[in-house]
Design a protein around this nucleic acid. Sequence first.
DNA 1: CTTGACATACGAATTAATTAGTACTATAAA
DNA 2: TTTATAGTACTAATTAATTCGTATGTCAAG
Lengths: 124, 124
Amino acid sequence: MRPKHTTLTPQELEIMKLVWRRESASVRDIYEELLEHRKIAYTTVMTMMKILETKGYLKKRRQDRAFIYRPAHPKNQVIGGMIREFMDRVFNGSAEPLLVHLVKTRRIREKDLQAIARMIEETK
Amino acid sequence: MRPKHTTLTPQELEIMKLVWRRESASVRDIYEELLEHRKIAYTTVMTMMKILETKGYLKKRRQDRAFIYRPAHPKNQVIGGMIREFMDRVFNGSAEPLLVHLVKTRRIREKDLQAIARMIEETK
DNA sequence: CTTGACATACGAATTAATTAGTACTATAAA
DNA sequence: TTTATAGTACTAATTAATTCGTATGTCAAG
């Protein structure tokens, strides 16, 4: 048996990111935005958004003939869960190795490193 | 069509973590260690390790009757790829939001924050 | 030499994730 | 009123990921 994803799957995330940006969206809204980047069918988007609704990530409300979807949870919270899951899976739950890796491999611009350093200071 | 994982899948990662820790391992070694945590069949482990070999994550060498597997790449490099993939997928490739989240949600112990701060200083 | 332990090879079943087609309905336009 | 448009509901097909069974071979002990 294959274990179910506890967080957003890649395609679910792609759609959620668009809904979060727009605050609310119809299937057509998302469909058209996705179309700019890749070939996809309208009904595919519909199915995905229905799945997101049954999973509790989207709330729907009928407006005229179509459904309008809104995020059920703030982006920060959901993304936080994904980070948590990633840390659990890859680093057995600890954040330090991830942080260390980010700093050491210089994936961060100098300017941002300084901002982080200040943030750490303020967090004291 | 469902897109293929470009990095290690969850179960692949679980096995790779054990192989990295031991430096080299037989199917039986990994099987017995996995068994301590969950029910799993010997042949399942064998299949997974064969997959990891064909994907280029493990190298095998026959020793007596059984195969001995070794990591084909250092852990740091592979994990680095996973972090990269995560950042691409979740944050469109930028590391800052991830870093900010880690610091702001205080997922890091105070002591470690200071260590990071020092590391940033040294990186200057 | 037979038997048991242990290994691999191969095939296959199951499930989640993703994609999309078809049927049907309601509204708006001609 | 007929027709085109735009939406949903439902069904289904495909593929990756995960799991394991069965067949087969080999070596060592009795």
